[in-house]
């Protein structure tokens, strides 16, 4: 208990001081919302402004980019060359993994909630009382994505190659889910393909909750995301060995 608490506070302070957190989860969403909202301001009419649409749709997309940020966070100790200290420290693997996942979730989740609240106020999105449910959905998505990212970062030696390939499916899922343009089709084959992307379900549940007052899909999606996150946490704890930290010496990147 002691070990995991110290590990958690240490990791949390490191996440807050890292520029990756602010760049990817505060500045990037705001820029994308403003840019896309301005570019497509003629798309919607008077009842819904493009800024409102993109504020609600960019947040889940930027949360999936946390997979890459948390993969880097997992490899932090390896790149800082503190591997030997961790090998001889009396701390269990379970504490390290859980502390990393929790610190990533809380720090990225706080950035997401900040962007959500700012856009709620500035663009006057009619959220009402459903703001708590949307916060729950975003936090569970952050947890799921961070668990997957830390599993990749801690478990794989050459995760840089995998990270370059991770970008492509994320972008494809975002385009299919309507994060860049409200996309729809009458072809039934394409409709099945569109429903394969998790971002389709997340975006749909957000709009169902706010505009149609139906929160069932949102609760189901949140539970599924939490379950997947729990699964990857369990897999990470079981498969992590402290010797993984030694492998960071070969791939020193210049930050």
């Amino acid at each position: 208990m002691n070990g995991s608490y110290h590990m958690f506070t240490f990791d949390f302070k490191r996440r807050i001081k890292s520029s990756f957190t602010y760049g990817y989860h505060l500045i990037f969403p705001v820029i994308m919302i403003l840019l896309l909202g301005l570019l497509l301001s003629g798309q919607f009419g008077e009842r819904l402004s493009s800024f409102q649409y993109y504020a609600l749709v960019m947040l889940p997309f930027c949360t999936t980019l946390a997979m890459i940020t948390s993969a880097y966070a997992g490899k932090d100790e390896a790149y800082q060359k503190t591997a030997y200290r961790f090998l001889i420290a009396p701390i269990k693997e379970k504490d390290i993994v859980i502390a990393k996942i929790l610190s990533c979730t809380i720090s990225f989740g706080m950035c997401n909630i900040l962007v959500l609240v700012i856009s709620w106020i500035i663009f006057s999105i009619p959220m009402g009382s459903s703001v708590l449910e949307i916060i729950l959905l975003l936090v569970s998505e952050t947890f799921c994505v961070c668990a997957i990212g830390i599993y990749i970062g801690l478990g794989m030696k050459n995760f840089i190659i995998l990270k370059n390939f991770l970008n492509i499916p994320i972008f494809i899922c975002a385009i299919i889910g309507g994060s860049f343009y409200p996309i729809g089709t009458s072809n039934s084959v394409l409709e099945v393909v569109f429903h394969l992307s998790p971002l389709t379900w997340v975006n749909r549940s957000i709009f169902l909750c706010i505009y149609d007052n139906h929160s069932e899909i949102l609760w189901i999606t949140s539970f599924i995301l939490l379950a997947i996150g729990g699964l990857f946490t369990f897999a990470g704890v079981r498969s992590f060995q402290k010797e993984e930290f030694l492998h960071g010496d070969l791939l020193r990147i210049q930050k």
């Binding site: 649409y53 309507g178 729809g184 975006n203 749909r204 169902l208 505009y211 149609d212 139906h214």
Partner: peptide, 21 residues
């Protein structure tokens, strides 16, 4: 023109997300 029966529970969501124009 393609047309389908719309669902009343997800009326606004379908319009916003582009399922029906």
């Amino acid at each position: 023109i393609t047309f389908q029966k719309a669902k009343e529970e997800s009326l606004h969501t379908d319009l916003i997300l582009g399922t029906y124009q």
